[in-house]
Each structure stands twice: as structure tokens, then as C-alpha cells.
Nucleic acid binder design. Structure first.
Length: 209
DNA sequence: GCCCAGGGCACTG
DNA sequence: CAGTGCCATGGG
């Protein structure tokens, strides 16, 4: 049962309390920009980019629209893919300055550079709305354990998870964070199964060893 | 030098 | 609709 798995991860790793991290003044914008910057990028590199933005007081939608795209590119360079991400940051800033109230998943997905995972990250962590985030880790982790097939789609996996755990924002946030932490520590691309505390219930482990 | 990281888009068959 | 190439930096 999936909710039991969540409890095991929580007991093993403790509460994660992910976002926000750096900014006390603009936590919401830090989450939104962080969600974009971390697309296929390690969080270490994202932190450097975020610190650069904070130093220049650019966790601000109007300010980031008022400066040149070149400057944004230079500041977020450590996060990689900086040409597209600079554009996406500006697209998102424009969206939020024009839509103060009517934020929705559908409207976020219309922004170029925002896909399902980034949209759900923004909705869950910045706006406390119950959208479970599906990332590469989530799919790998649950397919190895044997809960799902690797070929499952984003939407299918999302509804599978939300159908099997309580509809609770904090659980959504913590479960996702715990999956990421576990996949960084053990369930990597080439996993460290021997020392993993979940091997007794893992199909991948049973199949391989 | 190689592999990988909290994806998304454009293009193809 | 599924598969593929591309985007780019920094750490292991």
C-alpha cells in the first residue's frame, strides 16, 4: 500500500520541509523561479543561480522584466540551459504580472517553458494546491518497487498516487520530497540496492539479486 | 574525459 | 501518441 510506503520513508528520513529555502522576503517567487531553474538540473547549481538573483534583488516579477535578458542569462548561468530558462523566467513573470488572481494549471501550461511537472511544483509548493508532482525519480522509484509500469504516463501516475494516499497538501509535499531524497541516496540511475532499507519489498532488487 | 542532474520543446514516423 | 535530439553548467 502506497501510504504505508510514505510512512516508511518519513520515519527513515524525517520531515523534509522543502520550500522555500533562501529568501524570507519573496518565498513564493523563489519557489516559482526555483521550479523553472531546476528543470533537469541539480539543486546545487540552482542554488547558485537563485543566490545571484537574490543578490540583484530580482525575485520580483516587475524587476526581472525591466532588465535585459542578457543579464538574466548571466545570473542564472550556473543552472544550465540558461538561454531557454531566461526566456521562461520572463514569460512567467509576465504571466503573473498580468494574472494576479486567476492562476490555474491550465493557464500555467500555456506558458512556453512550463510543462506539467513545473506547473504542479508551482501549484503545490507556492500555492498550496493539491497537485502531486511526478518526476523522473517518482516513476523510477515506484516502477522499481513494482507499483507501476515504467511506461506509465504522467497523468496516469499522478492519479494513481492521489487515489492511494490522503488528499492532504502536507503529505503531497513531503512524499514528493522524500522520494527525491531516497532516489538521490539509494534509488539512483544505477542504484545502491545492497544498503537500501526498502530492498525487502523491492521487485527490482528481487529480480536482480 | 565521462556521466548525471528535482524537464520541456520541436520535430519525426 | 511514442521516440529522439537538443539545450548547458558544475560536481562526482
Amino acid at each position: 500500500m502506497l501510504f504505508k510506503l510514505y510512512k516508511k520513508l518519513l520515519k527513515y528520513y524525517g520531515k523534509q520541509n522543502w520550500w522555500p529555502i533562501l529568501s524570507k522576503q519573496n518565498p513564493k517567487i523563489e519557489i516559482i523561479f526555483g521550479a523553472i531553474l531546476t528543470q533537469n538540473t541539480s539543486w546545487k547549481n540552482v542554488e547558485k543561480a537563485l543566490k545571484n538573483l537574490i543578490e540583484h534583488q530580482l525575485l520580483d516579477f516587475n524587476k526581472i522584466l525591466s532588465i535585459s535578458e542578457e543579464l538574466v542569462k548571466n545570473l542564472i548561468k550556473p543552472a544550465g540551459f540558461y538561454n531557454q530558462k531566461a526566456k521562461t523566467l520572463r514569460n512567467v513573470a509576465k504571466y503573473f504580472t498580468e494574472n494576479h488572481n486567476s492562476i490555474s494549471r491550465e493557464s500555467l501550461l500555456k506558458i512556453k517553458g512550463i510543462g506539467k511537472e513545473t506547473a504542479d511544483s508551482i501549484l503545490l509548493y507556492a500555492y498550496n494546491q493539491p497537485y502531486f508532482i511526478i518526476d523522473a525519480y517518482t516513476k523510477r522509484f515506484l516502477s522499481r518497487l513494482g507499483y507501476i509500469k515504467e511506461s506509465i504516463s504522467y497523468d496516469e501516475l499522478q492519479s494513481f498516487i492521489t487515489n492511494h494516499i490522503p488528499n492532504n497538501i502536507e503529505i503531497y509535499k513531503e512524499f514528493h520530497a522524500l522520494i527525491v531524497v531516497h532516489c538521490k541516496n539509494f534509488c539512483k540511475k544505477t542504484p545502491d540496492c545492497i544498503t537500501c532499507f526498502l530492498k525487502v519489498e523491492c521487485q527490482f532488487y528481487k529480480k536482480t539479486y
